[in-house]
């Protein structure tokens, strides 16, 4: 049994008469410890997929199994608990709380989950040992994204979900962030899902899923992923 299983997942948004099918029967699998890159053009359903997998939205039809648990059957309250314990999020725009220091941003997440990693340690691990007391406005974009990753990792989640993690970063910084994600996955065996529209990144993945029009059109295993340092785009 795979770590993540999507079985014919459908998601329909309704607003009045209009009916939008964001996912129309998506099925795929991801194994534990893999780096999985999901690529596809805008509007293909990548974000919907992420929302549903991240416990932020419900699905209309189908089943999602994560580590043997059927999360598609969870109540809204159980979904909050699921977000609290099992998922780490990395956003395109970092979403740090402006009014909290780097350390406090990480603590905000670690304080509510049952088995967190030490917040300061985690920040040191992402290379921000010197910037613990700085507010987000005092950090560069790359540093802010590191704080965001540290915030996701400090929860010690089963799964790391990254939504265009390099979307707001320049080329070099973006590479460093991807390096950090790759190292994290390789070192700690964490399952990492990266959503991007940059198909150059597929080279670093163990598994590449191509999404188009709400369906997984192609799923390809990459027996020899290229280290990120050797990828150019």
């Amino acid at each position: 049994m795979a770590f993540i299983e999507f079985h014919d997942v459908k998601k329909v948004y309704r607003s009045g008469e209009v009916r939008i099918e964001a996912l129309r029967g998506m099925s795929f699998e991801v194994e534990r410890g893999e780096i999985c890159v999901i690529v596809g053009p805008s509007g293909a359903g990548k974000t919907t997929l992420l929302n549903i997998l991240g416990g932020m939205d419900s699905l209309t039809e189908g089943r999602i199994i994560l580590d043997g648990e059927d999360i598609s059957a969870y109540s809204p309250r159980k979904l909050i608990g699921y977000r609290r314990r099992d998922v780490g999020f990395v956003f395109q725009f970092y979403n740090l709380i402006e009014n909290l220091t780097a350390l406090e941003n990480v603590e905000l997440a670690s304080q509510i989950c049952p088995a967190p990693l030490d917040a300061a340690e985690t920040l040191r691990a992402v290379g921000l040992g010197e910037r613990l007391g700085n507010f987000p406005s005092q950090l560069s974009g790359g540093e802010q994204q590191r704080v965001a990753i540290a915030r996701a990792l400090a929860k010690n989640p089963k799964l790391l979900l990254c939504d265009e993690p390099t979307g707001a970063l320049d080329y070099n910084t973006g590479k460093q962030i991807l390096q950090l994600l790759e190292d994290t996955s390789r070192k700690s065996g964490m399952t990492v899902l990266i959503i991007t529209h940059n198909s150059a990144l597929t080279a670093m993945a163990d598994r590449v899923i191509t999404v188009r029009s709400g369906q997984a059109r192609d799923m390809r295993l990459n027996p020899h992923p290229t280290p990120i340092s050797q990828i150019e785009w």
Binding site: R84, L108, I112
Partner: peptide, 15 residues
């Protein structure tokens, strides 16, 4: 956005 982020982090509604 801040409140939404906090929710994503798994804060219950009341929290």
């Amino acid at each position: 956005r801040e409140i939404a982020t906090v929710k994503v982090l798994g804060f219950y509604d009341f929290e």
